[in-house]
């Protein structure tokens, strides 16, 4: 058993993927808890499509993909979160922006004729994260983690009852924007590991599973983080041994964990 766990660690690329991916999964699960419980689960999906479009446009015009994508996606996150607060028609706006983002990306790549690797951004390539990229990913995840810890009480209040939070503080806009920005950064950084089409799964699966198994908000956040990291680690090992695409394996493990949480949640309810 130990051998199965230790063998892949002999490869530098695997260790880099494990550390970077687990860090992304951790912060995605933390921030995703607030998005999911607030009913903004589609935000990650919408942002990833906008992110993909931006990265493709940046590549087409010869700009550095991430430095363009991060501010654009933060702006999109802010807009989408405002739209998402507006009700049913806002949901359609999120879906439309999401589809348009993807279409812009595909058309940009097609028109530019560059050899932009569409697949790596759509489906991710966590095993291809280089040693040079790893410190950037870890720094970004560390910063997101610290900001999250500092803002946790405000994020909880914002998630539970925005009206009360707004009445109590003059800084609602600041915390709302911070939550949007953190989501955007996670989506852009995570796009490389699990891909634009799958990154929203990191934001949704673990929090949704944890919320079914716990009674307190704090326990939900902690369990969500644990399940997010665990799903990533198990998925990565499965992809290594079964020669499966890493991003998809991680998402499938997350889906399996969610099915188990549904069953456990149902048992808990019967008691």
């Amino acid at each position: 058993m130990f051998e199965l766990f230790a063998a892949p660690l002999a490869y530098q690329f695997f260790v880099t993927a494990l550390v970077c991916g687990a860090s992304i999964a951790l912060v995605a699960a933390l921030v995703g808890t607030h998005l999911t419980l607030k009913g903004f689960s589609m935000l990650g999906d919408g942002l990833s499509h906008v992110g993909f479009g931006t990265v493709a446009v940046a590549a087409a015009v010869g700009a550095a993909p991430l430095s363009v994508a991060i501010p654009v996606v933060i702006l999109a996150a802010f807009l989408l979160l405002r739209l998402a607060s507006g009700g049913a028609r806002a949901d359609a706006s999120v879906a439309m922006l999401s589809a348009a983002g993807l279409a812009v990306g595909v058309v940009s790549v097609s028109l530019s004729g560059t050899n932009f690797d569409l697949n790596s951004y759509l489906f991710g390539s966590v095993l291809a994260v280089s040693s040079a990229e790893a410190p950037v990913v870890l720094f970004v995840c560390g910063a997101v983690f610290l900001i999250y810890l500092l803002c946790y009480p405000a994020f909880f209040s914002l998630t539970f009852d925005e009206e009360f939070f707004e009445a109590q503080t003059a800084h609602r806009g600041f915390f709302r924007t911070t939550l949007s920005a953190l989501s955007a950064v996670i989506v852009v950084v995570g796009m490389q590991s699990v891909g634009a089409l799958l990154i929203s799964a990191l934001l949704i699966f673990a929090p949704s599973s944890a919320a079914r198994l716990t009674r307190s908000f704090r326990a939900t956040v902690i369990l969500s983080a644990l399940l997010g990291v665990l799903s990533f680690v198990v998925g990565l090992y499965l992809s290594f041994y079964l020669s499966l695409p890493a991003g998809a394996s991680v998402v499938l493990v997350g889906a399996a964990v969610h099915l188990v949480s549904l069953a456990l949640g149902a048992v808990k309810k019967r008691r």
């Binding site: 419980l37 009480p153 405000a154 909880f156 209040s157 539970f160 009852d161 009206e163 009360f164 939070f165 009445a167 109590q168 503080t169 944890a210 919320a211 716990t214 009674r215 307190s216 908000f217 704090r218 326990a219 939900t220």
Partner: peptide
Amino acid sequence: IGYLPQKTPQDASFPATAFEVASLGLRE
């Protein structure tokens, strides 16, 4: 100012204890 809104927030599935909800009244 302490405020009690007319509408009760959140649905039954939101994971938070009564203690956690009450503690949101404390200033940050």
